[in-house]
Design a protein around this nucleic acid. Structure first.
Lengths: 197, 197
DNA sequence: AGCACTTCTTACCATACATCAATGCCGGGA
DNA sequence: TCCCGGCATTGATGTATGGTAAGAAGTGCT
């Protein structure tokens, strides 16, 4: 059933069709209703989620009790609190569903199995880690030095589909501004203040 | 000579004294004068630097031509543009020395050698990657939702020594604010506005 | 000692973004 | 159909932080 996941295994983790078939029976999927949680602050995160269908969000609560979205995960994305999984410590984050979704559960059992089946797994996982770090470095540098407008334009480049699927207040939360401010940023852009940063 | 590095190999990468001795001859060190560069924007980053002595900084230039410091690396820290190294692509970042420093060069040769000597190397490297991600997630969430004051207090906890060794404008650059604003934050804290965030 | 240089601070004003409140828009449920 | 709740927008105003300019303190050089 999880076709996206199978394609992902082939294209990104270098598995052959045969290897994928060997794994089929131990692939666990789960349906998640909109607003349902996969991880809450305080829990130890036990797995990584692959989004087969739908859209998840990974967020923190800030000092004012508002949510700051660190990451969106649409189809074919992975999401997890890797720190919590790896160090087996309580997470500071939440993961929940923005839309009704189907996820593939990647827990330690699955990782053991895939490591047996494909010796290259470790290598591809390492690539994912490096990619993640690269992405986070970029995010930090934008948050340090770029205006809300620049960050919004960058978001559109990264996630054009997500832009159309989530309410604007979630985009604002990802950008670190209020929904009102995002609304004004958008108005400025529409009013062709293109020269301005 | 690089005693810190040798201790690091033992304590953090699980090598025995014997294994460390085997590596001694292929450990390359380099002196870096204050303000000298180890990496410039546009270059492909070829190695990771272990700070044996001194203090480095990892930074980007923002849209206004000012530097945004992503990371400080005092003694016993590693610094690198891992994304650039791994994907062999031009870096967006700079690394230079804040103080006269001595670094150990960790290039692919060294990694090959250490992998032969210690089979656990990959494992410890993976731990480093996860730690890095955990740290960056925290940094992003603070930048998204915490005030300058909170971020400053958090910085002091993370890097109490660095605070005393760098000019304040560098701390400001790490926090994503101006030196003037940092000065005001510090005045507020000194004037005992402790309740206020 | 004198000078240049950098850093830190402060005062004053500007700007980006936040907050609050009101309005209008839509889409879903009874 | 009507209402209701969530969302987006807007205007008025508040606040945190930025920018500029000036001065004071520290450091190193000669």
């Amino acid at each position: 059933m999880p076709d996206n996941f199978k394609a992902y295994l082939k294209n990104n983790w270098g598995l052959t069709s045969t290897e994928v078939e060997q794994l089929t029976e131990c692939i666990k999927t789960q349906s998640v209703q909109k607003d349902e949680f996969l991880l809450r602050q305080g829990e130890v995160c036990k797995m990584t989620f692959f989004v087969e269908q739908g859209l998840l969000r990974f967020y923190a609560l800030n000092e004012n009790g508002k949510s700051d979205i660190l990451q969106f995960a649409p189809e074919n994305w992975l999401v997890s609190d890797r720190g919590s999984v790896y160090f087996n410590e309580p997470s500071h984050y939440f993961i929940d569903a923005v839309e009704n979704s189907t996820v593939v559960l990647i827990d330690s059992d699955f990782i053991d199995r895939i490591s047996e089946v494909s010796p290259l797994f470790r290598k591809y996982n390492e690539r994912l880690l490096h990619n993640h770090i690269r992405h986070l470095n970029k995010r930090v540098s934008l948050l340090l030095g770029a205006s809300a407008k620049t960050r919004y334009l960058d978001f559109i480049k990264l996630h054009p589909e997500v832009l159309l699927r989530v309410p604007q207040w979630m985009v604002a939360s990802y950008l670190g501004i209020t929904p009102e401010s995002l609304s004004r940023v958008r108005r400025d852009l529409a009013t062709q203040n293109f020269g301005k940063k």
